[in-house]
Structures are given as C-alpha cells and as structure tokens.
C-alpha cells in the first residue's frame, strides 16, 4: 500500500520534472557557472584544502537551490487533492527518495565538472565517492524536511537558506573532514568513525522527517 503510493508519487515527481525542464537545466547551469566562476577567480593553483572546501560549498548551494523548490512547484489546490489521496508518510518519503536521487546525480555532475576545471585532487577515489554519496543522501534528507517547513511558512527562499545552514552544518563539517582525508590519500580505516556518524545522521534525519511531517501536512 505505502510502497505503491510512494512509487506513484515518485513517478509523478519525475514526470513533473521532465515536463518543466527549466528546473533541471537551471540546476545544471548553476553548477557549471559557479564552478566556472571559481575557476576564473582562483586559477588552477590552489592547495587541496581549498579545493576540498570550495567543492563542498558549491555542492551545498546547488543542493539548496535544487531542493528548495520541491514543495512549491505545485499549487495549493493540487496539494489539497493529494491530501485526499495520499498519506503524509508516503508524501514525505517519496519526496526524500526523489531528492536523494536528484542530489546524488547533482553531486556526481558537480564532481565531474569540478574535476575538469579545477583538476581532480582526490587521491583515494573510493573513499571520496563513498563519502560523496553518503553526503548527498544526508543533505537531501535534511534539506527536504527544511523545504517542507519553509514551504508551509510561505516565505520560501529566504527562510530555506537560514533554516538549513545550521542544520546542514554538522553534516557538512563531517563530510569535509572525511573528504579532506580522501584528498590526502588516507584509507577507509582512518575515517570509519565519522562515516558511521554520517550514516547515523542520515537515518535520524529521515526518521524525524517521517515523524514530524504529518504535523506540517495537516492545516
């Protein structure tokens, strides 16, 4: 029941995304231009710490941009229609899964474009990619819930940024720490602790979203 509901809701989200292509293209262009601006302003002589930090900052901002529209793209009347059809748990889970997939694609795209212009500084690619995937999952789940909160308050764009920064920061700091180790070339063993931390944060963020979203959904 819930499984089918989530499947249909995700299919609907994908269909909507493909119908209005401007959003997807907009995100891609956002990533390309911010990386290009970084390239123009820094040149290619930067050390690996700066490389790492810039990568995550660009990724965070593009993720906030991509996810902030996840609830406002549909009007109030249609939301009311979903309200009669779907359960709140189904809605939030489908949004989280959809955003996770979107953010993972965004992360890989970001990495690819960033490597072209700024060079690929990562030495331990396995750890870097693994960290990137976990990070994309976590950032997507936290931001989805924040997007829902911002959406209910009707001041979406300003609030989205200020509400999400403090909540994403714990995750982002641990991601940057692991990523810095991958850039230097350390193995998995050195950052197992923090990777488990990130997985724990992901689970807690999703669990909280599932518990709390029903209160946002009802008016």
């Amino acid at each position: 029941m819930l499984y089918n509901e989530i499947r249909y809701l995700i299919a609907k989200d994908i269909q909507l995304e493909l119908r209005q292509k401007y959003a997807l293209n907009g995100i891609v262009l956002y990533v390309v231009s911010s990386v290009f601006i970084t390239y123009l302003s820094f040149g290619d002589i930067i050390n690996s710490t700066t490389w790492n930090a810039l990568f995550w900052i660009i990724f965070l901002f593009s993720a906030i941009n991509a996810i902030s529209k996840s609830f406002i793209q549909e009007n109030l009347a249609r939301q009311l229609y979903y309200y009669t059809l779907a359960s709140p748990v189904g809605v939030i889970l489908s949004k989280i899964i959809y955003n996770i997939v979107l953010t993972i694609l965004l992360a890989l795209l970001n990495y690819a474009i960033y490597s072209i212009w700024m060079g690929d500084n990562a030495i331990n690619h396995g750890l870097f990619i693994c960290n990137l995937l976990l990070g994309a999952t976590g950032i997507a789940s936290v931001l989805t819930m924040v997007a829902a909160i911002a959406w209910r308050s009707h001041n979406n764009f300003t609030l989205m940024a200020i509400l999400s920064f403090p909540l994403v920061l714990p995750l982002l700091l641990s991601l940057i720490r692991v990523s810095a180790k991958a850039v230097v070339g350390d193995g998995f063993a050195t950052s197992v602790n923090i990777l488990f931390m990130i997985i724990l944060l992901n689970f807690i963020a999703i669990a909280l979203a599932v518990l709390l979203f029903p209160y946002l959904w009802k008016d």
Binding site: I149, L167, A205
Partner: peptide, 8 residues
Amino acid sequence: FAFVLLLI
C-alpha cells in the same frame, strides 16, 4: 528537528 540534530 533542530534540537535532535544539534544534540548529535
């Protein structure tokens, strides 16, 4: 949401 995440 904020309290639990910050607590961790």
